[in-house]
Nucleic acid binder design. Structure first.
Lengths: 144, 144
DNA sequence: CTGAAATTGAGATTGAATCTCAAAACGGAG
DNA sequence: CTCCGTTTTGAGATTCAATCTCAATTTCAG
Protein backbone atom coordinates (compact mmCIF):
# COMPACT_ATOMS: atom_id res chain seq x y z
CA UNK A 1 0.00 0.00 0.00
CA UNK A 2 2.73 2.37 1.02
CA UNK A 3 4.33 1.37 -2.25
CA UNK A 4 1.29 2.23 -4.24
CA UNK A 5 1.27 5.58 -2.47
CA UNK A 6 4.93 6.27 -3.17
CA UNK A 7 4.40 5.34 -6.81
CA UNK A 8 1.43 7.62 -7.05
CA UNK A 9 3.26 10.51 -5.45
CA UNK A 10 6.36 9.98 -7.57
CA UNK A 11 4.25 9.60 -10.69
CA UNK A 12 2.93 13.09 -10.08
CA UNK A 13 6.40 14.52 -9.55
CA UNK A 14 5.66 15.22 -5.90
CA UNK A 15 7.66 14.38 -2.81
CA UNK A 16 7.09 11.52 -0.41
CA UNK A 17 7.06 13.28 2.92
CA UNK A 18 6.70 11.93 6.43
CA UNK A 19 3.51 13.91 6.88
CA UNK A 20 1.80 12.46 3.82
CA UNK A 21 2.75 8.96 4.91
CA UNK A 22 1.46 9.51 8.44
CA UNK A 23 -1.84 10.83 7.18
CA UNK A 24 -2.41 7.93 4.81
CA UNK A 25 -1.35 5.44 7.48
CA UNK A 26 -3.84 6.83 9.96
CA UNK A 27 -6.60 6.77 7.37
CA UNK A 28 -5.92 3.17 6.48
CA UNK A 29 -6.25 2.32 10.15
CA UNK A 30 -9.59 4.10 10.33
CA UNK A 31 -12.75 2.06 10.13
CA UNK A 32 -15.74 3.92 8.81
CA UNK A 33 -16.12 7.58 8.12
CA UNK A 34 -13.97 10.43 9.34
CA UNK A 35 -13.64 14.15 8.90
CA UNK A 36 -10.40 16.12 8.58
CA UNK A 37 -10.49 17.49 12.10
CA UNK A 38 -10.98 14.08 13.67
CA UNK A 39 -7.99 12.89 11.75
CA UNK A 40 -6.00 15.85 12.97
CA UNK A 41 -6.70 15.16 16.64
CA UNK A 42 -6.10 11.45 16.23
CA UNK A 43 -2.68 12.10 14.73
CA UNK A 44 -1.72 14.72 17.30
CA UNK A 45 -2.76 12.35 20.08
CA UNK A 46 -0.30 9.83 18.67
CA UNK A 47 2.49 12.39 18.84
CA UNK A 48 2.48 13.42 15.21
CA UNK A 49 3.27 17.05 14.46
CA UNK A 50 1.12 17.34 11.33
CA UNK A 51 -0.85 20.52 10.90
CA UNK A 52 -4.41 20.92 9.80
CA UNK A 53 -3.12 22.58 6.66
CA UNK A 54 -1.26 19.43 5.66
CA UNK A 55 -4.30 17.31 6.21
CA UNK A 56 -6.45 19.60 4.12
CA UNK A 57 -3.75 19.64 1.48
CA UNK A 58 -3.33 15.87 1.44
CA UNK A 59 -6.98 14.89 1.24
CA UNK A 60 -7.51 15.99 -2.38
CA UNK A 61 -4.40 14.05 -3.31
CA UNK A 62 -5.71 10.89 -1.68
CA UNK A 63 -9.01 11.28 -3.45
CA UNK A 64 -7.27 11.69 -6.77
CA UNK A 65 -5.20 8.59 -6.08
CA UNK A 66 -8.32 6.63 -5.18
CA UNK A 67 -7.17 6.01 -1.61
CA UNK A 68 -10.21 7.64 -0.10
CA UNK A 69 -13.69 8.66 -1.19
CA UNK A 70 -15.65 11.71 -0.33
CA UNK A 71 -18.80 10.61 1.41
CA UNK A 72 -20.69 13.77 2.01
CA UNK A 73 -19.52 17.06 0.70
CA UNK A 74 -19.99 17.52 -3.00
CA UNK A 75 -19.64 21.16 -3.85
CA UNK A 76 -18.23 24.06 -1.96
CA UNK A 77 -21.47 25.26 -0.49
CA UNK A 78 -25.17 24.67 -0.64
CA UNK A 79 -27.09 24.85 -3.90
CA UNK A 80 -30.78 24.44 -4.45
CA UNK A 81 -33.28 24.39 -7.25
CA UNK A 82 -36.97 25.00 -7.56
CA UNK A 83 -39.01 21.85 -7.73
CA UNK A 84 -42.34 23.45 -8.44
CA UNK A 85 -43.44 22.91 -12.00
CA UNK A 86 -40.45 20.72 -12.69
CA UNK A 87 -39.73 17.04 -12.52
CA UNK A 88 -37.26 15.42 -10.18
CA UNK A 89 -33.94 14.70 -11.81
CA UNK A 90 -30.33 13.95 -10.95
CA UNK A 91 -27.12 15.62 -12.06
CA UNK A 92 -23.95 14.91 -13.96
CA UNK A 93 -21.35 17.54 -13.12
CA UNK A 94 -18.29 18.17 -15.26
CA UNK A 95 -15.15 18.44 -13.15
CA UNK A 96 -13.41 20.44 -15.91
CA UNK A 97 -15.89 23.16 -16.78
CA UNK A 98 -18.53 22.82 -14.08
CA UNK A 99 -21.33 22.21 -16.58
CA UNK A 100 -24.39 20.58 -15.06
CA UNK A 101 -26.30 17.98 -17.05
CA UNK A 102 -29.71 17.09 -15.71
CA UNK A 103 -31.09 13.63 -16.32
CA UNK A 104 -33.97 11.51 -15.19
CA UNK A 105 -34.27 7.76 -15.25
CA UNK A 106 -37.41 6.00 -14.01
CA UNK A 107 -35.42 2.76 -13.91
CA UNK A 108 -32.94 4.38 -11.57
CA UNK A 109 -35.70 5.63 -9.31
CA UNK A 110 -37.37 2.22 -9.20
CA UNK A 111 -34.11 0.52 -8.45
CA UNK A 112 -33.51 2.84 -5.52
CA UNK A 113 -36.99 2.13 -4.20
CA UNK A 114 -36.26 -1.58 -4.43
CA UNK A 115 -32.99 -1.19 -2.56
CA UNK A 116 -34.68 0.81 0.17
CA UNK A 117 -37.36 -1.82 0.52
CA UNK A 118 -34.68 -4.47 0.86
CA UNK A 119 -33.06 -2.50 3.67
CA UNK A 120 -36.36 -1.60 5.31
CA UNK A 121 -35.48 2.04 4.82
CA UNK A 122 -38.16 4.70 4.21
CA UNK A 123 -36.76 6.88 1.50
CA UNK A 124 -37.57 10.55 1.82
CA UNK A 125 -35.31 11.97 -0.83
CA UNK A 126 -31.99 11.31 -2.46
CA UNK A 127 -29.03 13.03 -4.02
CA UNK A 128 -27.14 11.50 -6.90
CA UNK A 129 -24.28 13.41 -8.41
CA UNK A 130 -22.19 11.77 -11.06
CA UNK A 131 -18.87 13.56 -11.44
CA UNK A 132 -16.87 13.23 -14.61
CA UNK A 133 -16.00 14.94 -17.86
CA UNK A 134 -18.62 16.23 -20.28
CA UNK A 135 -18.44 15.49 -23.99
CA UNK A 136 -17.30 19.02 -24.86
CA UNK A 137 -14.35 18.94 -22.46
CA UNK A 138 -13.54 15.39 -23.46
CA UNK A 139 -13.27 16.52 -27.08
CA UNK A 140 -11.07 19.47 -26.15
CA UNK A 141 -8.88 17.22 -24.06
CA UNK A 142 -7.77 14.97 -26.92
CA UNK A 143 -6.77 17.93 -29.06
CA UNK A 144 -4.23 19.28 -26.59
CA UNK B 1 -48.87 28.05 -5.73
CA UNK B 2 -49.04 30.87 -3.25
CA UNK B 3 -52.07 29.06 -1.91
CA UNK B 4 -50.20 25.84 -1.49
CA UNK B 5 -47.55 27.79 0.38
CA UNK B 6 -50.03 29.54 2.65
CA UNK B 7 -51.69 26.20 3.39
CA UNK B 8 -48.35 24.64 4.18
CA UNK B 9 -47.36 27.50 6.47
CA UNK B 10 -50.72 27.57 8.20
CA UNK B 11 -50.71 23.80 8.55
CA UNK B 12 -47.52 24.09 10.53
CA UNK B 13 -48.96 26.81 12.78
CA UNK B 14 -46.56 29.39 11.36
CA UNK B 15 -47.17 32.84 10.03
CA UNK B 16 -47.44 33.88 6.40
CA UNK B 17 -45.04 36.79 6.30
CA UNK B 18 -44.15 39.13 3.48
CA UNK B 19 -40.54 37.92 3.62
CA UNK B 20 -41.43 34.27 3.19
CA UNK B 21 -43.67 35.11 0.26
CA UNK B 22 -41.00 37.22 -1.40
CA UNK B 23 -38.42 34.49 -1.04
CA UNK B 24 -40.64 31.80 -2.51
CA UNK B 25 -41.74 34.13 -5.31
CA UNK B 26 -38.16 34.85 -6.28
CA UNK B 27 -37.29 31.17 -6.22
CA UNK B 28 -40.20 30.26 -8.44
CA UNK B 29 -38.96 32.82 -10.92
CA UNK B 30 -35.50 31.30 -10.87
CA UNK B 31 -34.50 28.94 -13.64
CA UNK B 32 -31.82 26.45 -12.69
CA UNK B 33 -29.73 26.32 -9.57
CA UNK B 34 -29.14 29.03 -7.01
CA UNK B 35 -27.43 29.51 -3.70
CA UNK B 36 -28.73 31.47 -0.73
CA UNK B 37 -26.45 34.44 -1.28
CA UNK B 38 -27.41 34.81 -4.92
CA UNK B 39 -31.01 34.84 -3.84
CA UNK B 40 -30.24 37.49 -1.26
CA UNK B 41 -28.65 39.85 -3.76
CA UNK B 42 -31.36 39.26 -6.32
CA UNK B 43 -34.02 40.19 -3.79
CA UNK B 44 -32.17 43.25 -2.50
CA UNK B 45 -31.66 44.42 -6.07
CA UNK B 46 -35.42 44.33 -6.49
CA UNK B 47 -35.87 46.54 -3.46
CA UNK B 48 -36.74 43.84 -0.97
CA UNK B 49 -35.50 44.33 2.58
CA UNK B 50 -35.09 40.61 3.41
CA UNK B 51 -32.05 39.68 5.42
CA UNK B 52 -29.72 36.77 4.88
CA UNK B 53 -30.97 35.31 8.14
CA UNK B 54 -34.51 35.10 6.79
CA UNK B 55 -33.33 33.38 3.66
CA UNK B 56 -31.35 30.84 5.61
CA UNK B 57 -34.33 30.36 7.91
CA UNK B 58 -36.79 29.94 5.06
CA UNK B 59 -34.84 27.46 2.96
CA UNK B 60 -35.30 24.47 5.29
CA UNK B 61 -39.00 25.24 5.37
CA UNK B 62 -39.22 25.23 1.60
CA UNK B 63 -37.38 21.94 1.44
CA UNK B 64 -39.73 20.43 3.97
CA UNK B 65 -42.69 21.66 1.96
CA UNK B 66 -41.24 20.22 -1.23
CA UNK B 67 -40.97 23.58 -2.93
CA UNK B 68 -37.25 23.29 -3.49
CA UNK B 69 -34.63 20.55 -3.52
CA UNK B 70 -31.13 20.59 -2.22
CA UNK B 71 -28.80 19.94 -5.11
CA UNK B 72 -25.39 19.85 -3.55
CA UNK B 73 -24.86 20.11 0.12
CA UNK B 74 -25.68 16.95 2.00
CA UNK B 75 -24.13 17.13 5.42
CA UNK B 76 -22.71 19.96 7.43
CA UNK B 77 -19.12 19.45 6.43
CA UNK B 78 -16.89 17.09 4.56
CA UNK B 79 -16.68 13.41 5.42
CA UNK B 80 -14.49 10.79 3.86
CA UNK B 81 -13.82 7.11 4.09
CA UNK B 82 -10.95 4.84 3.24
CA UNK B 83 -11.40 3.01 -0.01
CA UNK B 84 -8.34 0.82 0.25
CA UNK B 85 -9.24 -2.76 1.02
CA UNK B 86 -12.92 -1.99 0.76
CA UNK B 87 -15.49 -2.09 -1.97
CA UNK B 88 -17.25 0.91 -3.38
CA UNK B 89 -20.70 1.42 -1.92
CA UNK B 90 -23.35 4.06 -1.49
CA UNK B 91 -25.14 5.31 1.60
CA UNK B 92 -28.56 5.49 3.14
CA UNK B 93 -28.59 8.10 5.88
CA UNK B 94 -31.26 8.26 8.56
CA UNK B 95 -32.54 11.80 9.04
CA UNK B 96 -33.73 10.95 12.56
CA UNK B 97 -30.74 9.29 14.18
CA UNK B 98 -27.96 9.85 11.66
CA UNK B 99 -27.30 6.16 11.19
CA UNK B 100 -25.43 5.31 8.00
CA UNK B 101 -26.33 2.18 6.08
CA UNK B 102 -23.88 1.13 3.43
CA UNK B 103 -25.11 -0.73 0.39
CA UNK B 104 -23.82 -1.84 -2.97
CA UNK B 105 -25.78 -2.71 -6.06
CA UNK B 106 -24.06 -3.81 -9.27
CA UNK B 107 -27.29 -3.14 -11.12
CA UNK B 108 -27.22 0.44 -9.90
CA UNK B 109 -23.63 0.86 -11.01
CA UNK B 110 -24.34 -0.58 -14.45
CA UNK B 111 -27.37 1.59 -14.86
CA UNK B 112 -25.31 4.68 -14.10
CA UNK B 113 -22.72 3.62 -16.65
CA UNK B 114 -25.46 3.23 -19.23
CA UNK B 115 -26.86 6.67 -18.47
CA UNK B 116 -23.42 8.23 -18.77
CA UNK B 117 -22.89 6.53 -22.09
CA UNK B 118 -26.21 7.88 -23.31
CA UNK B 119 -25.13 11.38 -22.36
CA UNK B 120 -21.59 10.96 -23.69
CA UNK B 121 -20.32 11.70 -20.21
CA UNK B 122 -17.11 10.13 -18.86
CA UNK B 123 -17.93 9.13 -15.34
CA UNK B 124 -15.10 9.53 -12.87
CA UNK B 125 -16.93 8.95 -9.63
CA UNK B 126 -20.33 9.45 -8.12
CA UNK B 127 -22.08 10.17 -4.87
CA UNK B 128 -25.44 8.71 -4.04
CA UNK B 129 -27.00 9.48 -0.70
CA UNK B 130 -30.48 8.28 0.01
CA UNK B 131 -31.99 10.19 2.91
CA UNK B 132 -34.86 8.75 4.85
CA UNK B 133 -35.80 6.96 8.04
CA UNK B 134 -34.14 3.73 9.14
CA UNK B 135 -36.16 0.75 10.29
CA UNK B 136 -35.29 1.32 13.97
CA UNK B 137 -36.50 4.92 13.96
CA UNK B 138 -39.52 3.98 11.89
CA UNK B 139 -40.49 1.45 14.53
CA UNK B 140 -39.98 3.97 17.34
CA UNK B 141 -42.05 6.53 15.47
CA UNK B 142 -45.26 4.51 15.44
CA UNK B 143 -45.11 3.94 19.18
CA UNK B 144 -45.25 7.62 20.09
C1' DC C 1 26.92 16.43 -0.57
C1' DT C 2 24.53 20.55 -2.62
C1' DG C 3 21.04 23.49 -4.06
C1' DA C 4 16.71 24.33 -6.36
C1' DA C 5 12.11 23.23 -5.71
C1' DA C 6 8.48 21.42 -2.99
C1' DT C 7 6.42 21.11 1.47
C1' DT C 8 5.60 22.17 6.06
C1' DG C 9 3.49 24.51 10.42
C1' DA C 10 1.57 28.38 12.96
C1' DG C 11 -1.32 31.64 12.72
C1' DA C 12 -4.13 34.89 9.97
C1' DT C 13 -7.95 35.06 6.94
C1' DT C 14 -12.09 33.98 4.52
C1' DG C 15 -16.82 33.26 4.05
C1' DA C 16 -21.01 30.47 4.47
C1' DA C 17 -24.04 29.51 8.00
C1' DT C 18 -25.89 30.38 12.49
C1' DC C 19 -27.03 32.96 16.56
C1' DT C 20 -28.65 37.05 19.45
C1' DC C 21 -32.00 40.07 20.81
C1' DA C 22 -34.69 44.20 20.56
C1' DA C 23 -38.12 45.86 17.37
C1' DA C 24 -41.78 44.83 14.17
C1' DA C 25 -45.38 42.03 12.09
C1' DC C 26 -48.92 38.57 12.29
C1' DG C 27 -53.43 36.92 13.37
C1' DG C 28 -56.97 35.12 16.68
C1' DA C 29 -60.22 36.94 20.14
C1' DG C 30 -63.33 40.35 21.31
C1' DC D 1 -61.07 47.36 13.66
C1' DT D 2 -58.18 47.03 17.91
C1' DC D 3 -55.67 44.64 21.26
C1' DC D 4 -52.11 41.55 22.67
C1' DG D 5 -49.43 37.27 23.08
C1' DT D 6 -46.61 34.88 19.90
C1' DT D 7 -43.80 34.58 16.00
C1' DT D 8 -40.65 36.54 12.94
C1' DT D 9 -37.52 39.80 11.38
C1' DG D 10 -33.01 42.47 10.50
C1' DA D 11 -28.38 44.01 11.67
C1' DG D 12 -24.54 42.71 13.29
C1' DA D 13 -21.80 39.47 16.03
C1' DT D 14 -20.23 34.89 16.09
C1' DT D 15 -18.79 30.34 14.72
C1' DC D 16 -15.90 27.25 12.56
C1' DA D 17 -14.41 24.52 8.51
C1' DA D 18 -11.45 25.47 4.96
C1' DT D 19 -7.91 28.12 2.80
C1' DC D 20 -4.07 31.12 2.49
C1' DT D 21 0.59 33.25 3.79
C1' DC D 22 5.26 32.93 4.20
C1' DA D 23 9.55 31.94 6.48
C1' DA D 24 11.76 27.71 7.85
C1' DT D 25 12.45 22.98 6.74
C1' DT D 26 12.71 18.85 3.98
C1' DT D 27 13.20 16.19 -0.16
C1' DC D 28 15.79 14.36 -3.89
C1' DA D 29 18.15 14.69 -8.49
C1' DG D 30 22.63 15.43 -9.97
Amino acid sequence: MDNRFRDFIAGKGLKATKERAEILQEIIGTVGHFDPDELYFRLRAKGSKVSRASIYRTIPLLIEGRFIDEVERVGKHAHYECVVGGQHHDHMICIKCGAVLEFYSPTLEDLQDDLCRQHRFSKVRHHLEILGVCSACDAGETQE
